[in-house]
Every structure is written in structure tokens, then in C-alpha cells.
């Protein structure tokens, strides 16, 4: 845990408090990450949507993947 308890004034009354905070940060971090999933999905989704339109309109018979990645 990044939270280092300050024991200079004696032990805290609830040593388990530190563990609760660790657990909070742990759960909060994962909840935040799952939110990021949807955010980046929106970006990817927008890109893929444009890509679909492009493929449907242009229908390019690309045989090699290299141009896609500017190789």
C-alpha cells in the first residue's frame, strides 16, 4: 500500500483502517478502468464506423496489408 501509516504518535486504534483504504483504492482503480473501457470503445467504434463506410464506398481490392500500415 502506498499509504504509509505514521506510527510516531503510537499505534492507530484501528490498524485495519490501512487495509480498508488499500482495498478502496484497489476497487476504485478497477472501476475507473472499466469506465475507460467504454470510453476507448467509443473512440475505436468511431474509427471502425468510418472504416466500414470507407470499405463500403471504395471497395478497394487491396491484396497486401502493407499500405494500410504505411510500410
Amino acid at each position: 500500500m502506498s499509504e504509509t501509516a505514521d506510527f510516531s504518535k503510537g499505534l492507530p486504534a484501528h490498524p485495519e483502517r490501512a487495509t480498508t483504504e488499500g482495498k478502496n483504492k484497489f476497487v476504485g482503480f478497477w472501476v475507473f478502468l472499466s469506465g475507460e473501457v467504454t470510453m476507448f470503445a467509443t473512440f475505436f467504434g468511431t474509427y471502425l464506423a468510418f472504416e466500414t463506410v470507407r470499405l463500403q464506398v471504395l471497395k478497394p481490392p487491396i491484396s497486401s496489408p502493407c499500405p494500410l500500415f504505411l510500410l
Binding site: V31, S34, G35, T38, T42, T46
Partner: peptide
């Protein structure tokens, strides 16, 4: 909120 405000953030960013 976690799953819906993030797409809004993405859309507003665009």
C-alpha cells in the same frame, strides 16, 4: 455513470 459518461467524454472530445 461510469459506463455512460465516458462515451460522452469521448464524443465531446471529438
Amino acid at each position: 455513470i461510469v459506463f455512460a459518461f465516458t462515451p460522452l467524454a469521448a464524443g465531446l472530445a471529438l
